[in-house]
């Protein structure tokens, strides 16, 4: 690990000043950043630790919105009563991610900016990887792609966005408040991550000096009848093979509104509006749920080893819809 300078910011203003002067990279829990530094994928000279900044480690439950400070840890958010009750999809996305030790360190803001687990990307510069070394090619295109994208890939990169939390946020139309040299502004989580296109190394719309301050999630009936269903290679401590974040608003058995987002199968958190529309107005039973599950994967473009996720994903979406429907009835 190369030598770097470490400092701590105690306020946003202090952070702004440090970044303006020396362009320090933001460090939160470090579970992504240090990992990538050890792998020499990230090589920042200067880090500024933001975890001491006051006021960004709270969850506030407003009547129609949950506001998460960017420095809240995954474990605190996953166990928060208002989150569990008002938006189970969020709590489940967090508690089914990583391990307890990681969740204790990792922050909600940092989580959004985790990077792909593509093995070629992580294993060293001897592997062609446009994300790591632009222009070097993509080893995954003709390689081991069991963990790669069925949606949103390009001829340059098919790496999956691995996070769970962002998928749940996208399902609920969440936004982030961001502060940096462009001032303070708000971005939909759905447009935070970019498609790889020809520039897979550019992953988000954030400027390097922009900090996520808050994550705001509209909550109401829809969020309450929600779930995060995650299928993985083991029962804990694994990224998703495929996951489904769904939320439902039912009226006498009929779907008034539905949200469906996919994780583990796309280059960024993946909403599927066509499937949502396909479900709206229908009576929900398992057969309909599976039909909609299949609709969700209608545009999937499988590679060599990940085709099984089309059938698996359809079932996962269907199961998720049934769980959410149950929660709707139980209210």
């Amino acid at each position: 690990m190369q030598t770097f300078t470490y400092s701590r910011a105690r306020s946003i203003n202090e952070l702004r000043a440090v970044q303006a002067a020396t362009g320090d990279r933001i460090l939160a829990g470090g579970t992504t950043l240090y990992d990538l530094m050890k792998l020499r994928i990230e090589t920042p000279d200067r880090l500024v630790d933001v975890t001491g900044i006051a006021g960004l480690d709270e969850i506030i439950s407003h009547p129609d919105e949950l506001v998460f400070g960017a420095l809240v840890t995954m474990s605190d958010a996953a166990a928060h009563p208002a989150v569990l009750q008002r938006a189970p999809v969020l709590a489940e996305a967090l508690s089914k991610a990583a391990s307890q030790q990681l969740r204790n360190m990792a922050t909600l803001g940092g989580n959004l900016l985790q990077r792909t687990r593509c093995a070629y990307f992580r294993n060293g510069t001897e592997y062609p990887c446009n994300k790591r070394t632009p222009g070097s090619g993509c080893a995954a295109l003709e390689g081991l792609d069991r963990g790669h994208a069925l949606f949103g890939g390009s001829g340059s990169c098919i790496a999956v966005y691995p996070g769970d939390w962002a998928v749940a946020l996208v399902a609920l139309d969440a936004v982030v408040d961001v502060r940096g040299s462009r001032g303070t502004h708000t971005i939909d989580v759905a447009s935070l991550h970019r498609l790889p296109g020809d520039t897979p190394h550019v992953e988000t719309v954030l400027e390097p000096d922009e900090m996520i301050l808050n994550i705001r999630v509209p909550v109401g009936r829809l969020a309450q009848a929600s779930t995060y269903h995650k299928i993985r290679d083991r029962e804990s401590y694994a990224f998703a093979l495929v996951s489904a974040a769904v939320a439902l608003e039912l009226e006498e058995g009929f779907v008034r509104q539905a949200r469906i987002a996919l994780g583990g199968v796309a280059t960024r958190p993946w909403r599927v509006p066509a499937a949502e529309a396909g479900l709206t107005g229908r009576r929900l039973d398992r057969a309909t749920a599976l039909e909609v599950g299949r609709m969700t994967f209608a545009d999937a473009r499988p590679g060599r080893h990940n085709g099984f996720k089309i059938a698996l994903g359809a079932e996962a979406v269907a199961d998720a819809l049934m769980i959410a429907a149950q929660r709707s009835e139980n209210r």
């Binding site: 687990r117 093995a119 029962e235 401590y237």
Partner: peptide, 11 residues
């Protein structure tokens, strides 16, 4: 140990 999938307690 993240990617070489050994069983965990929950398994």
């Amino acid at each position: 140990l993240a990617e070489y999938v050994l069983p965990v307690n929950a398994d």
